[in-house]
């Protein structure tokens, strides 16, 4: 069930982590641990893009997952970007000024090219 809601695609040094479904208190810890576990084996990855195109909603625990992955990549001296958040999630990023520390792109393609 959890594996279905998380997909990791790696190409060279760039990884795209795709969440499918809400990222909320109920599943946030498992998703965070699973994502980190998969990334641990991919030491060549220094650019992580989180694809939120299939995420309708993030609560504060969901924001916590993104911040935790932001720190994970920073520790690796890598970078994190967000791709395709819906308007509601985009608003969360704008209002909480998270866009100042994590770049947000409207499409995955743009994120891959820019990142």
């Amino acid at each position: 069930m959890l594996e279905e809601s998380l997909e990791l695609l790696v190409e060279k040094n760039t990884a795209v982590l795709k969440f499918d479904g809400e990222v909320i208190f109920d599943n946030s810890n498992q998703l965070k641990e699973e994502a980190k576990e998969r990334l641990k084996g991919k030491t060549e990855v220094d650019k992580l893009i989180i694809d939120l195109s299939k995420v309708p909603y993030l609560d504060s625990s969901g924001v916590g997952v993104l911040l935790s992955l932001f720190k994970f990549m920073r520790t690796r001296e890598g970078s994190l970007a967000i791709a395709e958040p819906n308007a509601k999630i985009r608003r969360v990023f704008d209002v909480t000024k998270m866009t100042e520390i994590i770049p947000v792109y409207m499409s995955l393609e743009e994120a891959v090219n820019q990142n």
Binding site: L67, V95, T96, K97
Partner: peptide, 18 residues
């Protein structure tokens, strides 16, 4: 009145001027 801004989090570290 917007009361957003960055939350307190160890992932972000101390944000003195934010």
């Amino acid at each position: 009145i917007n009361i957003g801004g960055l939350p307190i989090s160890t992932a972000l570290g101390a944000l003195k001027d934010s």
